[in-house]
Lab assay of single mutants.
Amino acid sequence: MDVFMKGLSKAKEGVVAAAEKTKQGVAEAAGKTKEGVLYVGSKTKEGVVHGVATVAEKTKEQVTNVGGAVVTGVTAVAQKTVEGAGSIAAATGFVKKDQLGKNEEGAPQEGILEDMPVDPDNEAYEMPSEEGYQDYEPEA
């Protein structure tokens, strides 16, 4: 019985440690998101679009440190934060509304985080759909 109880105690310690790591990862992701939003706020009209992409990228980098179902929630929060940063930029006159959601080359930025393969159960990952990809044929 002692062996059984000791095993359960060790398992509990492992769960607590994993929860603490997840909590730490979420806190880091939130900190990076805040950094990115402050970065966007300090940019001029020309830099705002690039700044919004930076927020998304920093958040995406930190999301990889967070495991399990938390990833889905962090990704949703990050996307809403990026959308909010863009709205703030438009409201303050840093950028025109028609410039939001495009990178410096004018290509749409939507789907940055949505296409990231995420499995809350950590069982399997699927690649994003290939609808947006084109076949590449090298020139002879």
Score class of each variant (00 low, 15 high):
residue 129 S to G: 11
residue 14 G to S: 14
residue 95 V to W: 10
residue 138 P to T: 05
residue 13 E to G: 14
residue 136 Y to P: 04
residue 70 V to Y: 08
residue 59 T to L: 06
residue 27 A to G: 09
residue 87 S to K: 07
residue 63 V to P: 00
residue 86 G to P: 05
residue 14 G to P: 02
residue 93 G to K: 14
residue 140 A to H: 12
residue 93 G to F: 03
residue 121 D to M: 08
residue 57 E to A: 11
residue 67 G to Q: 07
residue 105 E to H: 02
residue 74 V to I: 05
residue 91 A to I: 04
residue 54 T to E: 04
residue 9 S to N: 13
residue 108 P to G: 03
residue 93 G to N: 08
residue 119 D to H: 15
residue 40 V to K: 01
residue 36 G to T: 13
residue 27 A to R: 15
residue 104 E to A: 13
residue 68 G to D: 02
residue 87 S to G: 14
residue 58 K to T: 05
residue 99 Q to L: 12
residue 33 T to Y: 03
residue 39 Y to L: 09
residue 87 S to I: 14
residue 48 V to W: 07
residue 81 T to F: 06
residue 71 V to E: 02
residue 59 T to K: 00
residue 119 D to S: 05
residue 8 L to W: 09
residue 60 K to R: 07
residue 132 G to W: 06
residue 32 K to Q: 03
residue 16 V to R: 06
residue 16 V to E: 07
residue 85 A to F: 06
residue 2 D to R: 03
residue 36 G to K: 15
residue 17 A to N: 08
residue 94 F to E: 04
residue 11 A to Q: 00
residue 100 L to Q: 13
residue 108 P to T: 14
residue 22 T to H: 01
residue 25 G to T: 15
residue 40 V to W: 02
residue 7 G to R: 15
residue 50 H to A: 10
residue 103 N to T: 07
residue 135 D to N: 12
residue 139 E to K: 13
residue 51 G to N: 05
residue 41 G to H: 14
residue 22 T to C: 04
residue 3 V to M: 07
residue 67 G to L: 14
residue 36 G to W: 06
residue 118 V to P: 06
residue 88 I to V: 14
residue 8 L to K: 00
residue 79 Q to I: 12
residue 74 V to K: 01
residue 89 A to H: 06
residue 94 F to P: 03
residue 106 G to K: 12
residue 97 K to D: 09
residue 80 K to W: 07
residue 24 Q to Y: 13
residue 89 A to D: 02
residue 54 T to A: 06
residue 58 K to M: 09
residue 47 G to E: 05
residue 66 V to R: 06
residue 137 E to L: 07
residue 101 G to N: 02
residue 91 A to P: 04
residue 66 V to T: 03
residue 134 Q to A: 06
residue 113 L to T: 09
residue 87 S to Q: 11
residue 64 T to M: 03
residue 7 G to K: 03
residue 110 E to V: 11
residue 5 M to L: 01
residue 1 M to K: 00
residue 40 V to R: 02
residue 36 G to S: 14
residue 126 E to S: 05
residue 116 M to Y: 02
residue 76 A to R: 08
residue 119 D to F: 06
residue 65 N to P: 03
residue 107 A to I: 09
residue 42 S to H: 15
residue 127 M to F: 11
residue 81 T to E: 01
residue 25 G to H: 13
residue 118 V to M: 13
residue 138 P to Q: 05
residue 28 E to K: 08
residue 46 E to S: 14
residue 129 S to M: 09
residue 21 K to W: 13
residue 123 E to G: 11
residue 12 K to C: 05
residue 84 G to N: 02
residue 49 V to H: 14
residue 82 V to R: 14
residue 129 S to C: 07
residue 138 P to V: 10
residue 78 A to S: 05
residue 16 V to H: 08
residue 134 Q to T: 04
residue 26 V to R: 00
residue 115 D to E: 11
residue 15 V to I: 10
residue 66 V to Q: 02
residue 120 P to Y: 06
residue 76 A to E: 04
residue 62 Q to N: 14
residue 91 A to F: 09
residue 84 G to Q: 14
residue 95 V to R: 13
residue 49 V to G: 02
residue 104 E to D: 08
residue 27 A to H: 06
residue 102 K to P: 08
residue 133 Y to V: 08
residue 80 K to S: 13
residue 136 Y to V: 10
residue 27 A to T: 12
residue 1 M to P: 00
residue 9 S to F: 14
residue 1 M to A: 00
residue 99 Q to Y: 05
residue 56 A to G: 09
residue 88 I to Q: 06
residue 6 K to E: 03
residue 2 D to V: 03
residue 115 D to R: 08
residue 6 K to I: 01
residue 112 I to G: 13
residue 99 Q to R: 08
residue 54 T to P: 01
residue 98 D to K: 11
residue 39 Y to Q: 06
residue 25 G to D: 02
residue 29 A to N: 01
residue 95 V to S: 11
residue 128 P to A: 11
residue 125 Y to D: 13
residue 140 A to K: 10
residue 120 P to W: 08
residue 79 Q to R: 13
residue 114 E to I: 09
residue 47 G to Q: 07
residue 61 E to A: 06
residue 84 G to M: 11
residue 136 Y to E: 02
residue 41 G to M: 12
residue 120 P to V: 04
residue 72 T to N: 14
residue 62 Q to P: 02
residue 130 E to I: 08
residue 55 V to Y: 09
residue 13 E to H: 02
residue 108 P to Y: 10
residue 37 V to G: 02
residue 34 K to W: 08
residue 73 G to V: 14
residue 100 L to W: 02
residue 39 Y to A: 05
residue 10 K to L: 10
residue 75 T to V: 08
residue 121 D to S: 13
residue 130 E to N: 14
residue 123 E to C: 14
residue 40 V to N: 00
residue 127 M to R: 10
residue 112 I to D: 04
residue 85 A to R: 03
residue 36 G to E: 03
residue 4 F to I: 06
residue 92 T to C: 15
residue 100 L to A: 09
residue 126 E to R: 08
residue 104 E to T: 12
residue 120 P to F: 10
residue 124 A to V: 08
residue 82 V to I: 05
residue 95 V to L: 13
residue 35 E to Q: 03
residue 27 A to E: 02
residue 17 A to Q: 14
residue 102 K to E: 03
residue 44 T to W: 10
residue 114 E to H: 15
residue 51 G to Y: 10
residue 89 A to R: 07
residue 123 E to Q: 05
residue 51 G to E: 01
residue 65 N to W: 15
residue 123 E to K: 15
residue 104 E to R: 04
residue 56 A to L: 07
residue 81 T to V: 11
residue 62 Q to A: 08
residue 84 G to A: 15
residue 12 K to D: 00
residue 22 T to K: 00
residue 80 K to L: 12
residue 115 D to Y: 14
residue 6 K to G: 06
residue 66 V to D: 01
residue 100 L to H: 07
residue 31 G to Q: 11
residue 62 Q to D: 02
residue 29 A to S: 04
residue 123 E to L: 10
residue 123 E to H: 14
residue 27 A to P: 00
residue 26 V to E: 00
residue 103 N to R: 11
residue 30 A to I: 14
residue 105 E to F: 05
residue 1 M to F: 00
residue 132 G to N: 13
residue 37 V to W: 11
residue 44 T to A: 03
residue 31 G to R: 12
residue 88 I to F: 02
residue 137 E to H: 08
residue 96 K to P: 04
residue 113 L to S: 06
residue 59 T to F: 04
residue 135 D to S: 02
residue 125 Y to N: 09
residue 120 P to S: 08
residue 113 L to C: 06
residue 130 E to K: 13
residue 50 H to Q: 08
residue 97 K to A: 09
residue 106 G to H: 06
residue 7 G to S: 10
residue 35 E to T: 13
residue 59 T to A: 04
residue 37 V to F: 07
residue 107 A to H: 13
residue 56 A to H: 04
residue 9 S to V: 06
residue 109 Q to M: 11
residue 88 I to S: 01
residue 87 S to V: 12
residue 62 Q to T: 13
residue 78 A to R: 12
residue 85 A to I: 13
residue 74 V to M: 11
residue 78 A to C: 15
residue 11 A to N: 00
residue 87 S to P: 07
residue 85 A to H: 04
residue 41 G to V: 08
residue 80 K to A: 07
residue 87 S to Y: 09
